[in-house]
Design a protein around this nucleic acid. Sequence first.
DNA 1: TATTAAAAGTGTATTTTTAACACGTGTAAA
DNA 2: TTTACACGTGTTAAAAATACACTTTTAATA
Lengths: 239, 239
Amino acid sequence: MQNTDQKEILSLAYYDHEDKVLLAVDCIIFGFDQEELKILLVKRGFEPEKGKWSLIGGFLKKEEDLDIAASRVLYHLTGLNNIYMEQLYTYSKVDRDPADRTLSVAYYALIDIANHDKELIKQNSAKWFPIKEAPNLIFDHNDMVERAMARLRRRALSKPIGFELLPEKFTMRQLQKLYEGIMGKKLDKRNFISKFNSFDILIKLDEKDMSSSKKGAFLYKFNEEKYNRKVEEGFNFKI
Amino acid sequence: MQNTDQKEILSLAYYDHEDKVLLAVDCIIFGFDQEELKILLVKRGFEPEKGKWSLIGGFLKKEEDLDIAASRVLYHLTGLNNIYMEQLYTYSKVDRDPADRTLSVAYYALIDIANHDKELIKQNSAKWFPIKEAPNLIFDHNDMVERAMARLRRRALSKPIGFELLPEKFTMRQLQKLYEGIMGKKLDKRNFISKFNSFDILIKLDEKDMSSSKKGAFLYKFNEEKYNRKVEEGFNFKI
DNA sequence: TATTAAAAGTGTATTTTTAACACGTGTAAA
DNA sequence: TTTACACGTGTTAAAAATACACTTTTAATA
């Protein structure tokens, strides 16, 4: 308490005449269901723009930093904790929210669709949409999604991606489809595999996935240590 | 006024119980003086941390968006308008500013050092520092500078840079020194020139700059149209 | 049980890009 | 006239990216 009191005093002394604003956090939640890249949207249950589709959001609380606020918002919608999230951009147009002067800090999250709490998102009137079939969104949320896609593309080319989006074991084809979804184009499987193998972050398992073909496809998992090292180092995946 | 009244009413109805916060804008101002990359810092004239070096900053006002606030802050320090600025990241640690809960949105700016108002920065107790000799800064401003450098490096590799930092006419060597300053390493001049020329955005002039050698060095300028097209397209400058 | 269908898996040749590297030129100053 | 200094230029070898097609496996079906 003493610390807080002291802050109050300092604040009065130094920053007393400055404007304060509402700060929201909005989350672009990407998921992958072994076929395509999807995004989780909510049907807004309150005014303004009630009934329209939007990103999930919430307001920053005094005692939180932005990363924590974003995690809280994600947790409330999906039941998931410790998810990869990254700050994207802060949107500040004066009239972006007709209700009040509100700035919004956009975060994007990457999750394996299979893991989320389906009941919870139903309760929140949320729904997964394939990226290309997403509806029009309120406010500047379309811009946010577009910027998140651009960031995701860049990220996929500069460090490994997939750990957050794929199940523990996955096939080469799933990995490739993930990259195709992110990059928005078809890739040549031979080139993709040999390039990806050159990063040396995959472990080939003895198991096969038999669900997608008669021959079956070998399963892989990430070598977590090498994966993380590559995340630090970065690489150049030219596609 | 009616619009504002309506907002007030909506706000009371919808967002009434949410916390509001102070939002600052801090600017990482990069300049180039034909020799090295520099950064403009101010000696803080008020508490807390009075007398220490910091980025130039200011508080967001109700009627501004962030881009405008950042431009205002830059203008007050340098007298410059219409400068290239880009939003970098929003810093939000709860205790980042001991005086009060303040978030800060960092922006970086690129300017030609020759153009700024020297008198004005003297009045503001500001000073240019070579990037590598910058003093320790208050709060999280060191992080901001580091992130800005990383962003600048990435930007220099993915689209042309220089229009904002160089004088209208410049030599190949100056351009190369700019890139060396950004990338933090020496480059081979033959490879640099032939790679840069492959982008086809330079115009070689008949004039020479005689200040740096007896032989003199040809001056170049950017073909603005082609330059801008490349900024849109992006390229891959692998160094 | 032979055939079919569908996805898995694999290698090479060509082109493009990058990286490494050294010496003659022009001119002002000594 | 000599010197000193930065300017300007081209080639070759290595690495990376791209384009491209056929065989394998096996469950399902005839």
